[in-house]
Every structure is written in C-alpha cells, then in structure tokens.
Design a protein around this nucleic acid. Structure first.
Lengths: 190, 190
DNA sequence: TCAAACATGAACAGATCGGTCAATCTTTTC
DNA sequence: GAAAAGATTGACCGATCTGTTCATGTTTGA
C-alpha cells in the first residue's frame, strides 16, 4: 500500500470516528466507507486501537499546524496571536462538520490514565500548552506558563460547550475572558 | 419494583456507565453488576437509551444539588460562592473515582444535536448557567449572564483537563482566572 | 388463602463486534 | 514471461451487542 493510500485510509477513518465516535464505529463500516478491505486494513494496523492511534497522530499534526498557522495569519505579535486563538476557534466552530475536539472525545471513551489513546490525547494538549507558553513568554508576561494554562482552560471549555450546544457563542465568551486575563497579567520589567 | 430498588438500579448503572463509558457498557454487565435480571430491567426501561436518560436525570439532580450546597457551605456571599465553585471542583477532582463530567462524556458519545441524551446533557449545563447567572446578579455585577458564561467556560475547561491529565491543577488555573475576571467585571451602581 | 402482579434465570433472536483465513488477483523482479 | 511477493476478497470465527420469550418462582394484598 502506497503512503498516499495509507494516509487516505487514515483520513477517511478519521472522518468516521470523528462523526460517529470510536466505539460506535465498527471496522466493517471503516472498510466499507474507505473502500479498503478489512483484511488489508488489518495488514497495516494490528488492531483497531492501532488505527485509532494513527488517526490521532494525523489529527494532532493537522489540527495543530492549521490552528497555529491561522493564529499567525491573524496577528504578527505574540500577544495578538494569543487573542487570535479565539477567533480561530470561532471560525472552526462555524465550520459545517464541527463536532468538538477529537482528543477530548477520545479521552472520554478511553479514559484510563495509562491507556495509549488517552496518553496521546494528553500529549496533544501538552504540545498546545507549550506553544501558548512560548507565546506568553515572547509577549513578555511574567509566569508565562500560568497564563498559558488559563488560556488552555478557556480554550477547552469553549470547545466543549460549543460542541454540546452546537453554537459559536462560547468562543466569544472565552475571548472576552482572555482579553481580561491578558490585560491584567503582570509583565516583565523591560 | 419499589422506588428504592429502582433508584438503586439507576445508581449502580450510573457507576458502570461513568467508569466504562456508555457504548462500552453492555446490558448484560449492567444486569450482572446491579443484581437485577435483564428481563426486569427491560420491564422498567424500554431501551438502553431510556436507562441512560434516567441515569442522567439522577446525576443532574445529585450533582447540581451537591455542588450548589458545597458552594453555599464554603461562602455566605454570592461573589464568594462563585469563587468557591473552583474550590468545590478541586475537591471533586481529588476524589478517588473522579472521571470527568458525565454529561460531557454522554454528549461526546451521542453528539447529534437533537439526540435526547445530548439534549439532556445540554439541559444540565443550562441549569448550572442559570444558577451562576443568579449569583452574578445577586453579587451586583453588570451583565451577569456574560460573567456567568465565562465562569462556565472556565469550569468546563477545568473539568476536561483534570479528567484527561488526572491532575487537580486545572482547578487552580481556573480559579486564578476567575479571580481576575471577578475583580475586573464592572458592577452596577449602588 | 388464593389469585393477581411481579421478578427471575436461561435460552434465544438477529445483528454486529474485532479479527482471521484460504483462495484469488496484481504487481514486482529477474 | 515466469516465479515470487504483496494486496485484495468474501466468507467465516467466536464473542458480544440490544432486546425478547417462556416457564418458573416469589411477593403481595384483599
């Protein structure tokens, strides 16, 4: 199987898992919808869990790259990019197929602390937190990690509420809150 | 079946669904663990979905009552209670069986907008938001609904991150953020 | 006390679950 | 162009899924 076909398979599986959930999506459906026979799928992925992990790896790269690039497109400054996070979120919420955060959902279905799927979901959040921390540091804030943690809490809360309510409003709620946090967070001496 | 037995059945089912997830918990297991035969369960609940809805109704009452009472125990003032929310959350995160918010997880597994389970999960969040709004109003804040929405975003974000990371830290992150929000939110003229 | 109401276990449907197999079909390689 | 290697297929495995049937207890109330 070529690398392209493999990626295609993962991408189509991603759509299915994202729309229907992990437990609720059977491998027969994956085979039917991807056009790849179950035997072939299992040649490349030992178990369903392995396929899910591959899906999450792809999603992590895709999502993080797109989000960060969008934040950079929306602003030139580190502080502006932190605020732009919430505009990017709102754009995402408005997209047709928006169904919440794939990692939150994965973690909800495989919640044991040491489960590889939960570990991978956590890793995604950790990488995002690293980026927010770097931005907060570049913007000259004291305790950049603290501020980044608060931004992350706002982001996750907004995603969960937007997915549940099928509304974009939580994005602006989170943005307003972030605005206040940024304005009041102490900065380093120049 | 007596009312007590019925409640007992729902409560034990709640534990199972909360620990293992909804799709991942079969009705045979529910029958075995509750000690109620499958036949009897289906006498009282037409479908598994009906049982889940009953579980969520119980959870809503239980959780909301406990949370609100704890906030009231921790503070006498409306503003203090809003802050105490995050102390109550932290206590919850520390409890042995903490596995995140049951409604977020239910919504993640049954995410279609009009699905009764998702509707019920949304209703739980709506009721919490009402309470936060009332507190914000009682505390004399302008735009109490706005402030309450921001508090709710912080709460949901903290729960999701705490469940995923199996850590209590998001509670204090959210509390610090809430502190800043409350301090800077405009108040009505006296 | 006797019958109506309810609860039970075990077996059974029919579908679907994750995963495998031998038999084919394609592609590569010499 | 033939042989080796890899990919694909549909049928199949045993287990489990939600939900039902039935014949047999067990409560319960008048």
């Amino acid at each position: 199987m070529s690398r392209n076909k493999r990626t295609e398979l993962i991408r189509k599986s991603l759509d299915l898992f994202y729309r229907n959930g992990f437990h609720a999506t059977g491998m027969d459906l994956v085979a039917k919808e991807t056009g790849v026979s179950k035997t072939s799928i299992y040649k490349h992925f030992r178990t369903k869990e392995d396929l899910i992990l591959a899906v999450l790896r792809l999603r992590d790269e895709d999502f993080r790259n797109r989000l960060i690039r969008r934040m950079e497109d929306l602003s030139d400054t580190a502080e502006g990019q932190l605020m732009a996070l919430f505009d990017a979120l709102e754009e995402w919420f408005q997209q047709a197929g928006f169904q919440g955060c794939m990692f939150i959902k994965a973690s909800a279905e495989f919640q044991q602390k040491e489960h590889p799927i939960n570990v991978q979901a956590m890793e995604h959040k950790r990488l995002l937190l690293e980026h927010f921390t770097a931005l907060a540091e570049a913007a000259g804030f004291e305790n950049p990690r603290d501020l980044a943690c608060q931004i992350l809490v706002l982001k996750e809360g907004a995603i969960v509420l937007a997915a549940m309510s099928h509304s974009c409003d939580p994005a602006s709620d989170a943005r307003k809150a972030a605005q206040v946090l940024l304005r009041n967070h102490p900065k380093n001496d120049p």
